[in-house]
C-alpha cells in the first residue's frame, strides 16, 4: 500500500486489497477488485459510482453480509479498530454489527420490521448490545428519537413503521443505527428515496450527529451533489475498482480521472446554457472487460496505450488516480 489519499491518520476502518465474487450464470465473477482505502476517526468519506460499480458490495463486505447474498470475499483484509473482521465467526460479527459499525440503508420501509412498533425494535437493538433493563432502553429510545428530530417522541415510539412518513422512517433508522454509539456508520444511499427538502433535513441531521458523537461515516451514494456537500474525501469506483481518490474540493475542482470528469460533465445544472455532455456507451459487463483500462472504450482522452495494459492506481500529489494520462491531462472540474 502506498501512502496516498486513501489512507487516514487514525483509521477506524482499513480495507486492503478487497476482492468480492458472486456466483452468476457466467460462473464466479469478481464484482469488487483490489479495493483499498481507510476511513479515519470522525471523518466522512464518500464512496461514489454508478449502479453496479461495486460501492454497495464494498459496504456489505464491511458489514459481513456478503455470504448471505451467495457471494464470497475472495481476497483482502478488512480491519475495524485494528480487528480483522474477516476472521470473525458469524456470532462475533453480529456482536460488531450495530455495536461498532452501524448501517443506514436507502429504503427505510424495508429496513424496519413492519410488524413491530418503532419502540420494540429500538429496545431490542439496545438490549442486544448493552446491559440495559427494558425501561432504561425505552427511556434511551425516547431520547434518541428526540435527538433525531422526531416531534412528540413519547407518542411516536409506539407507532408502527407504516404510520410514519419516509423522512421520519429514515430518522428512526438513524436513531436505531446510532443507539449504541458506533465508531463507524455506513450510510448506503441514505437519502436517495427522499424528497430534496427532506434530504436536506436528514443530511443536516447526520452532520450534526456526527460532529457531536465523533463517529466516522462512510457515505455510499451516486449523488455527486450530496457528496460534495457532506464529505471530506471521495473515493470514485468504476466497474468494481477504485479509479480515483482525492479530497472533495480537489476532486470537484480538478478531477484526475477522465471518468470523474465525464460524470461531472453529465450533471445538468452546472452549466445550464450548454448542452449536456453524456458519457457514451455503458459500463462493460464483468465477464467481458476490455483488456486495457476498463474505461478506455468510453473515454474521449484514450490513447493507443490505454487499450493494452490495465493501469494501476498511482499516487499523484496526495491523491491517486488509475489513469495513464493522469499527469498530462488537464480535465475540467466544476469550476467556481
Amino acid at each position: 500500500m502506498s501512502s496516498h489519499a486513501s489512507s487516514a491518520v487514525d483509521p477506524v476502518l482499513q480495507i486492503e486489497d478487497l476482492a468480492v465474487e458472486f456466483i452468476t450464470e457466467h460462473g464466479w465473477l469478481t464484482v469488487v477488485d483490489g479495493v483499498s482505502f481507510e476511513v479515519g476517526r470522525g471523518e466522512t468519506v464518500g464512496l461514489i459510482g454508478e449502479s453496479g460499480c461495486g460501492k454497495s458490495v464494498t459496504a456489505m463486505a464491511v458489514l459481513g453480509l456478503i455470504e448471505q447474498r451467495s457471494g464470497r470475499v475472495s481476497r483482502g483484509c478488512i480491519r475495524l479498530d485494528g480487528r480483522d473482521l474477516l476472521a470473525l465467526d458469524s456470532r462475533e460479527m453480529r456482536e460488531i454489527r450495530g455495536r461498532k459499525v452501524a448501517m443506514v440503508f436507502q429504503e427505510p420501509m424495508t429496513s424496519i420490521d413492519p410488524a413491530f412498533t418503532v419502540g420494540n425494535q429500538m429496545v431490542e437493538v439496545l438490549r442486544r448490545h448493552l446491559p440495559m433493563s427494558r425501561s432504561q432502553a425505552r427511556q434511551r429510545s425516547v431520547e434518541l428519537l428526540d435527538r433525531v428530530g422526531i416531534t412528540d417522541p413519547h407518542r411516536r415510539i409506539d407507532s408502527f413503521p407504516h404510520e410514519l412518513s419516509g423522512g421520519m422512517r429514515q430518522r428512526v433508522l438513524i436513531a436505531m443505527a446510532l443507539s449504541c454509539e458506533p465508531d463507524l456508520l455506513i450510510a448506503d444511499e441514505p437519502t436517495t428515496a427522499l424528497d430534496v427538502t427532506v434530504q436536506a433535513q436528514v443530511l443536516d441531521l447526520l452532520a450534526g450527529l456526527q460532529a457531536e458523537m465523533g463517529m466516522a461515516v462512510l457515505l455510499v451514494t451516486h449523488d455527486l451533489g450530496v457528496v460534495s456537500e457532506t464529505c471530506e474525501r471521495v473515493i470514485v469506483m468504476y466497474a468494481g475498482e477504485i479509479v480515483e481518490t482525492a479530497s472533495t474540493d480537489e476532486l470537484f475542482a480538478r478531477p484526475l480521472h477522465p471518468y470523474t470528469a465525464a460524470m461531472l460533465a453529465s450533471l445538468p445544472g452546472l452549466h445550464p446554457d450548454e448542452p449536456l455532455d453524456p458519457i457514451p456507451g455503458i459500463v462493460p459487463p464483468r465477464h467481458a472487460l476490455p483488456p486495457g483500462c476498463w474505461f478506455e472504450p468510453r473515454c474521449e482522452h484514450a490513447i493507443e496505450l490505454c487499450g493494452s495494459g490495465h493501469p494501476t492506481l498511482v499516487a499523484v500529489g496526495g491523491r491517486s488516480a488509475r489513469c495513464l494520462r493522469a499527469d498530462d491531462l488537464r480535465l475540467p472540474g466544476v469550476g467556481s
Binding site: 421520519m168 427538502t197 436536506a200 470537484f252
Partner: peptide, 25 residues
Amino acid sequence: EALLSAMPNPKPASRRQRILLTGEM
C-alpha cells in the same frame, strides 16, 4: 426558494443559502 436551496450542489460558488424547511408536508 426552499426547494432550490435544498438541492445538493457540487459547485461551491453557486451554492445557495440553505433554507431548511421545518416539519413535514
